[in-house]
């Protein structure tokens, strides 16, 4: 592992992003627009809007970064750049951390814009601070990046890569407690929900909603999400083979 190579790789990924203006615009504007849509759906700010918008601030970066990363990594595999990179001094960890860093940074900008719009333009109110919301959003985004890096190994084409969204992301979304409170689910569903990282991210955000100071539960949740990210990165490293058939 080399810091120079990791940073160079992150810079390279960000440069690729910069040349793709439309993607940058979509990354930054779409979450804020979707929140505005929620605002009008619930007829202005208030209890339900606050609860759902807060959770969405954590869900959007997760979903978007998962998608962007799995396509980016798939391209590395199909265009031969990955094969070439693995014949250079670049280590697998350098590549994975480089991606995590680059898209984590992009997620920070995206999270700041979306959170800013939610609080100042759409009147979102939470007991806890907006800074914590951005922090959780960024950790969530990096979880999305890690899962995207891992899942891209199982896709041969971009069509397949996109199909991992319903497989990996939607069940987590359905079971995270947004639609049905986790306590009201059948026991086995709650068990599955306990095993899914997004559950903890959503719980952490809910904590920010109800308490002025960061709670221990919130920190515990964040540590669990970060732990799941590390596990996904290790699994992703295992899918990066220098030798292929």
């Amino acid at each position: 592992m080399s810091a120079r190579i990791t940073f160079a790789t992150a810079a390279r990924v960000l440069r690729q992003l910069r040349h793709d203006r439309r993607t940058v615009a979509l990354l930054i504007v779409v979450p804020a627009l979707l929140l505005a849509l929620l605002y009008f759906m619930y007829d202005g700010a208030g209890g339900t809007f606050d609860r759902i918008a807060l959770i969405m601030l954590g869900v959007f970066p997760f979903v978007i970064m998962f998608l962007v990363t799995s396509i980016a990594m798939l391209r590395e595999r199909t265009t031969g750049t990955l094969e070439r990179l693995l014949t250079t001094p670049l280590g697998k960890i350098d590549l994975l951390f480089g991606y995590g860093l680059a898209f984590g940074l992009a997620a920070a900008v995206q999270g700041a814009v979306a959170t800013g719009a939610a609080y100042w333009l759409l009147g979102l109110e939470t007991r806890g601070s907006a800074g914590l919301v951005v922090l959780i959003a960024v950790v969530n985004a990096v979880l999305g990046v890690a899962l995207g890096l891992f899942c891209s190994a199982f896709a041969r084409t971009e069509f397949q890569a996109v199909q991992f969204l319903p497989v990996v992301v939607v069940p987590q979304l359905l079971l995270c407690g947004l639609f049905v409170a986790r306590g009201q689910m059948a026991g086995w569903l709650e068990g599955i929900s306990d095993a899914l990282p997004l559950t903890y991210a959503v719980d952490a955000l809910a904590q920010v909603g109800v308490s002025a100071d960061p709670t221990t539960t919130m920190w515990r949740d964040l540590v669990i999400v970060a732990g799941a990210t590390v596990v996904a990165l290790v699994l992703a490293a295992a899918t990066l083979r220098r030798r292929t058939p």
Binding site: R12, R15, Q16, H19, D20, T79, G80, T81, E83, R84, T87
Partner: peptide, 12 residues
């Protein structure tokens, strides 16, 4: 190493 199909980043 130069692979048979050009392996450089098209968006750089």
């Amino acid at each position: 190493y130069v692979t048979q199909a050009p392996s450089v980043y098209a968006d750089l």
